[in-house]
Design a binder for these strands. Sequence first.
DNA 1: GCATAAACCGTACCGAGTACATTTTTGAAC
DNA 2: GTTCAAAAATGTACTCGGTACGGTTTATGC
Lengths: 206, 206
Amino acid sequence: MMAGLREKKKEQTRRRISEAALRLFDERGYDAVTIAEVAEAAGVAKVTLLAYFSCKDSLVLDAVKEDLAAIVVGREEGRSPLDALREHYRRMASNGTGGMDVEELFTRIRVISSSPALLAGLQHAHASQRAELAAALASTLPGDGLVAQLMAAQISAAVTTLQEAFFHRLSTGVSLEEAGRLLGADVDLAFDLLQHGFSSPQGEKS
Amino acid sequence: MMAGLREKKKEQTRRRISEAALRLFDERGYDAVTIAEVAEAAGVAKVTLLAYFSCKDSLVLDAVKEDLAAIVVGREEGRSPLDALREHYRRMASNGTGGMDVEELFTRIRVISSSPALLAGLQHAHASQRAELAAALASTLPGDGLVAQLMAAQISAAVTTLQEAFFHRLSTGVSLEEAGRLLGADVDLAFDLLQHGFSSPQGEKS
DNA sequence: GCATAAACCGTACCGAGTACATTTTTGAAC
DNA sequence: GTTCAAAAATGTACTCGGTACGGTTTATGC
């Protein structure tokens, strides 16, 4: 379907911008670098950069966005939404990088973890998916939709927390393999908590 | 403790700014009003306005912020954190306005509900409390803190959802009394879900 | 009264993001 | 190869939220 030299160049330009951004942010800190500087480093105009990335934080965050709703919608027959999500994250934990550039991933996580603005952006990205996830869950549930909304909110909150814990470990020197192993345990902990609530077994004491 | 004419004037100025902001936002929409216009309408300089309200959205949101961590920390002896929060919101639901100006509250909710930026800001406000809440919960729990973080994330997600549902009803014509009544039921639903998880009784089907 | 510190002000500035009119590049049709 | 329309990229000028700075008013404690 249209190999397209046009598409290819767009891809290249996007990568150039993204790499320049990541490098500069890593060297000098996210807040201290302006998008105009990124544009110059990538050899494009500021307007062009903003055509590729809608805002400053998506220069870093676009590459780590996920689609929870899609996982639910595309789950195997007979599997519950929660199990599908649990399975997805378990696989992720054991998968290592899944073919990604490890060095780049580390840099990205280092940049995100050291910038409050980007951490907030990450939260926001998850929160934005809440509505879609709620819609996907609503079709599997009775009632007026509040339960689906609550579940969606709790799930994305849990996932955000898992991701933060994972990022925090990686940015404090834990190896990728070890972090993956720990993530696997965390995933089960988190999903057990979602499934069975705060009471039992590791829930509150009173 | 120092009746203070100084303090009183500050209070007045703050109110003047807040009221001017709410009125303008309600008349013309949040995005269409600049903080410079609000400052002029309130008779203060833009810089002064920003000394009272750190950013544009806090002109509206400062009045509706809550402190979940404080509720947990200040709970009655022997009561679990989750029960303390449940009780707090149940009380809120039956309390009506608790002495607030009803008209102003409605306007505020109307403004918030009709602005994506403010709804996002509300989410962010809750997310910001997560860390504090996690710290408060961590002291009541064993383990390395991940459980506390997960719980805190889930709780604030649930509370955000409850608040949104409540706001949505009020901004679509439901009376305050009726919305309060419905909120009471929602609170129990949400906290049951937190306590017992997605399985049983209203949880997922498979 | 008088000194001090807080509140307030005007102005100039920064950076993110948008609008617009213009030019360059590209894919394809002839 | 030439031509042509669409897409991509550009430069400029702009808006707006937020900050820095230096100076002025005003309440308060002595």
